[in-house]
Simulated scan of single mutants.
Amino acid sequence: MKMFEYRFAIAPLFHFIASKSMEAGLHVCDGRGKQTVQLFMNDAASEKGKKRIGAIQYEGSNDYAMKEPYIVSWRFERALLPDGLKQDLEAITAFRRDRKEGTAINPNAQSIAFKFEALTDAAKETIEAITAVLQRHARR
């Protein structure tokens, strides 16, 4: 799938996460957005109109001409995840930011959200851990 062709400093991070999502077996769909791609458990789920399980999104700016986004959010909708997948994603705490304010990890927030600002070794390690969890559950 052709991803957004932005030249933002964090674009390689966005593409890395999207690639890892596909490697894990998720279907990535652009949904005609300019900053977000939607994630589905598989191709059939998106074609049958099932709800997405998550998204990858540029954050930090709504006007790219004025300011580049500086965060990539990889989030998963708690209410739409199978229980085992939800529990395994909840267990990963690095780079978590479930809400904009308050505690970083909030089990009552709508999403399990991971927010990255650079493709550091620590970020890669967490992205690989998330990918491994997704792979285990996508193949069931």
Results as ranks from 00 to 15, higher is better:
residue 104 A to W: 13
residue 77 E to D: 10
residue 93 T to V: 10
residue 33 G to K: 15
residue 103 T to N: 11
residue 69 P to Y: 03
residue 75 R to V: 00
residue 96 R to Y: 09
residue 31 G to V: 00
residue 48 K to C: 06
residue 43 D to I: 04
residue 87 Q to T: 10
residue 88 D to E: 15
residue 72 V to T: 07
residue 85 L to Q: 07
residue 44 A to R: 08
residue 80 L to C: 05
residue 61 S to E: 04
residue 47 E to Y: 01
residue 59 E to G: 03
residue 63 D to G: 00
residue 58 Y to L: 00
residue 30 D to I: 00
residue 103 T to Q: 11
residue 34 K to F: 14
residue 59 E to A: 11
residue 47 E to V: 01
residue 37 V to R: 01
residue 41 M to A: 06
residue 98 D to K: 12
residue 48 K to S: 07
residue 60 G to L: 01
residue 83 D to C: 02
residue 79 A to L: 10
residue 64 Y to P: 01
residue 51 K to T: 12
residue 56 I to Q: 02
residue 84 G to L: 14
residue 96 R to V: 11
residue 84 G to P: 07
residue 100 K to A: 13
residue 33 G to P: 01
residue 100 K to S: 10
residue 45 A to D: 13
residue 67 K to M: 13
residue 78 R to Y: 04
residue 63 D to K: 01
residue 48 K to L: 09
residue 61 S to H: 06
residue 73 S to I: 03
residue 65 A to H: 14
residue 43 D to K: 13
residue 80 L to K: 14
residue 54 G to S: 01
residue 54 G to Q: 03
residue 56 I to L: 06
residue 82 P to D: 09
residue 98 D to E: 13
residue 76 F to K: 08
residue 43 D to H: 15
residue 97 R to T: 08
residue 95 F to H: 13
residue 54 G to P: 06
residue 82 P to F: 06
residue 56 I to M: 04
residue 79 A to E: 10
residue 63 D to W: 04
residue 65 A to C: 04
residue 90 E to D: 13
residue 101 E to A: 12
residue 74 W to Q: 05
residue 65 A to Y: 14
residue 82 P to V: 03
residue 57 Q to T: 08
residue 40 F to I: 06
residue 43 D to T: 12
residue 56 I to H: 02
residue 39 L to R: 03
residue 65 A to W: 14
residue 84 G to V: 02
residue 69 P to W: 03
residue 105 I to A: 06
